[in-house]
Each structure stands twice: as C-alpha cells, then as structure tokens.
C-alpha cells in the first residue's frame, strides 16, 4: 500500500500541489504593492508609460536635426544643438543650469531600473511556474510582439548602453566626438552604415516592445471599458509606428545626406 499522504488544512488529504512560493512577510505600503506580481505589473505599466513619454519627446526633439542651422541669440547654430542647450537651461533661473535636467534624468533612470527589475523578477516567477509542453503549441492570440517582450527589451537595453556610450559619453571610436555638439555627433555616428543598421534594428525591437507594451499597459493598470477597448490596438499600432518611422528616418536621412553637418555654415 502506498505511503499515507499528509493532510493539508485547505484542500484535504489528496493534493500533491504545494505553493511554489512561500508567503512573504508583508512590507509596509507602498513596498507591499511591489511584492505581488499584480503590483509589479502595475509598476511596470506606469514606468513603461513614462519611458514611452520619454521616447516620444526624444524623437520629437531629434526632428530638429532636419531644421539645420538657425539664428539663436544672435549666433548661427544647429537647431538640434540649440534644443540640447535649452534642455540644460530648463527652468533657469528658478533652478541652476542642468539641475532640472538631472532631476528628469534621475526619474528616467529610476523608471528604467524599476521597469527592468519588475520585468526580471516577473520573468523569473513565470519561468518557475511554467512547465513547458513537450508537443508543439499552437498559439492563437499570443503574437510575436507579446512573446518576444523579454528579448526586445534586452535588445533595446543593450542598444541603449551602446547609444549612450556612443553619443553621450563619446566612448565609441569612428568619429570625432564633441561634447554638446549634437548635430555633429549624430551625423558622425550614423554615417557609419554599421551603426545605422544597429540603430534600425534596435528601433524595430523598440517599436514591437511599445506595441505590446501599450496594449498591455491598459490591462495592467486596470483601465478597461468595453466601449473603448477596441481602440487599444490602433493606439498601440499608432504610437509604435510613430516611434519607428520617426527614429528610423534619422539614420536614413544621414546616409542619404538629408541631415548633414557642415561646419562652414556656422562660420557665417
């Protein structure tokens, strides 16, 4: 005869299924929120929303690359560079120069960290709860974007580090990096076809990530109204497309000389 089973208070004598995770001691609010997967998804959605906001503003700012040289405070200057300068001067003189920008950057970094950490820990949780099928699954609703979130996220993170090293810190050789010279640096970097291809691939990953992210965000935040639900897909497609078209236009424009850097124009 088989060994007697132990009896659990909740479902009696016959359950082989035990909790996969121990019950945690509850932390004080708001940390308690982040202890559960539903809370983490909420944080992921909110930080994702912040990051999408950043991506859109970043892309809109970059559109200034198309404007070329403008007259700025009596000087001829690339509009993109002027834009960069204006970010550093946000709310001057209420706060000293670059201070607000740093506050924004810190917020952004915080959002990134939370977004990545929540993704990491949820992925670990899901790997622990999931048990792979031996036979081939036939996906009905899950699409490539939704199933590749963790990969598109990682690809884009890798690109982001490269992007910062390349344009913000000037650590990537290949052109003469100059601090604050946005137009010069962008054109210098993207003139290299390899960098341009990396840029395009990363933005494809980003667009896919945003596509599923936006659709998913509403569910995670609990924003759901049957009357407007059918707008979620179009919105996700719209934002992803705007980001993709906007961002991918830059390397193409650089390679086709639509965006140029010509120091002689500044001499005048």
């Amino acid at each position: 005869m088989a060994a007697p089973t132990t009896t659990s208070a909740v479902t009696g004598g016959n359950s082989a299924s035990r909790p996969l995770r121990p019950t945690q001691r509850k932390l004080p609010f708001p940390a308690s929120l982040y202890q559960t997967a539903v809370g983490k998804k909420w944080v992921m959605a909110l930080t994702g929303l912040m990051l999408i906001g950043f991506v859109l503003v970043h892309m809109a700012g970059n559109l200034k690359l198309y404007l070329g040289v403008v007259q700025h405070q009596g000087e001829l200057i690339y509009d993109a560079d002027a834009y960069g300068e204006s970010l550093r001067e946000l709310l001057v003189p209420i706060v000293p120069r670059t201070h607000l920008l740093w506050v924004l950057r810190l917020g952004l970094i915080g959002a990134f960290v939370l977004h990545i950490h929540s993704a990491y820990s949820l992925t670990r949780m899901n790997l622990a709860t999931n048990f792979a099928y031996e036979s081939k699954r036939d996906w009905l609703a899950a699409n490539f974007a939704s199933r590749s979130m963790r990969y598109t996220g990682v690809i884009f993170l890798a690109y982001l580090i490269f992007h910062l090293a390349d344009l913000t810190w000037g650590l990537i050789p290949g052109y003469e990096w100059e601090r604050g010279e946005i137009q010069h640096n962008v054109v210098g970097s993207l003139s290299n076809p390899v960098v341009a291809i990396i840029y395009v691939v990363a933005n494809l990953a980003l667009a896919m990530h945003i596509y599923h992210g936006i659709y998913s965000m509403f569910q995670s935040l609990g924003i759901n109204n049957p009357r407007y639900n059918q707008l979620r897909r179009p919105l996700a497609i719209g934002v992803a497309t705007i980001v993709l078209v906007g961002n991918v236009s830059f390397p193409i424009a650089v390679l086709t000389n639509i965006i140029e850097y010509d120091p002689s124009l500044l001499a005048g």
Binding site: T36, A142, S220
Partner: peptide
C-alpha cells in the same frame, strides 16, 4: 500568486 505565474496579456 503562490501557485501561478503573472499575466503578460497574451490573450
């Protein structure tokens, strides 16, 4: 959440 994974909104 003691037993199951988290939702990634695949549908």
């Amino acid at each position: 959440e003691q037993f199951f994974g988290s939702c990634t909104n695949h549908g």
